[in-house]
Amino acid sequence: MITEIDLSEIGAPLMQRQISFGKSQIFLREYTKREGLKLFSWRFARRARTHNKVGRTISLGIGYSKDELGDEFHRAKTIDLPTNITMDIYRCCLMLFHKFYAGKTVRSILVTLSNIEDEVNQQLSLFEVDNEKRRKLGFVMDGIRSRYGSKAILRAVSYTPAGTAL
């Protein structure tokens, strides 16, 4: 039997670098269909941009209502070009949602961006001509939110009765 002794200090971080960015949210009420995905706060992509990081693996977890036996699913997709663009992450999550959603009532959601690397190492694509424009748009929106508050720019769905941002 091999015994291993951990000599690290109590409370010291286990890893020195960020391994993922993510957010989970338990909704105040239950949602049907894809409402929950639209209402989810996508602010973790802002944190990735702030740290000049991009990720290749996008994970989606959906928790269903306890009334429907509390079932859930977690799936991930690794993409060719790493990203921190909110709408790229959203589209990937939407694809995962459509593929694995069981038609039950949604109560919670978890989205993570992992397989992290520095943004400066990002390979440009010849086939996505507006990628740089969309990347810059994310930074502009982050700047507005930093200066005027997180509610300065919201998606239209946030102003509906089902919205959670306000």
Rank of each mutant, 00 (worst) to 15 (best):
R47M: 11
R135G: 10
S108D: 10
I85R: 13
R43C: 00
V120Y: 09
E9N: 06
Y159V: 06
L110G: 13
E68T: 02
S59I: 00
I5F: 01
S158G: 12
I5C: 02
I79D: 11
T50I: 05
M95L: 12
D67V: 07
T32Y: 04
Y90E: 14
F27T: 07
R29V: 01
S146C: 03
D71K: 13
R107P: 04
E68N: 06
K66F: 14
N121D: 12
A152G: 12
F21E: 14
S150I: 00
L94A: 15
F139I: 09
R145S: 07
D71F: 06
K38N: 14
N131P: 01
T164Q: 10
I26A: 00
M141E: 15
N84I: 02
N121V: 03
I62D: 02
R107Q: 06
G55C: 07
N84S: 13
G163W: 07
Y101M: 03
F97S: 00
T86S: 11
T164N: 04
K77N: 12
V129R: 06
E9K: 05
F100V: 05
Y159K: 14
S158R: 02
A156F: 02
S114M: 05
E35W: 09
P161V: 14
I79C: 09
V120D: 04
P161Y: 04
K77M: 14
N115F: 00
P13N: 08
H98D: 11
G70I: 07
M15W: 09
M95A: 13
G103C: 01
G61A: 04
R145Y: 04
R135E: 13
Y64E: 05
F100S: 08
R134M: 03
G163E: 12
D142Y: 02
D6C: 02
R107W: 02
K151S: 13
K136P: 06
T78N: 00
S24V: 03
I58M: 08
L124I: 09
K77D: 10
N121S: 13
T112R: 15
Y101P: 01
I109A: 15
T86W: 03
T32M: 07
D6W: 01
G55R: 09
V129Y: 03
S108F: 10
M87D: 10
L7R: 02
D6G: 00
M1K: 14
S8M: 00
E35N: 12
E128S: 13
T160Y: 08
R34G: 10
E35A: 11
K66I: 13
N115Y: 00
Y159C: 10
F27V: 03
K136Y: 05
K77H: 11
S41Y: 10
L14W: 05
L37P: 15
T83W: 07
I79N: 09
L110C: 09
T112C: 13
I116Q: 09
G22V: 08
L7G: 02
Y90G: 12
L7A: 01
I19L: 07
D118T: 06
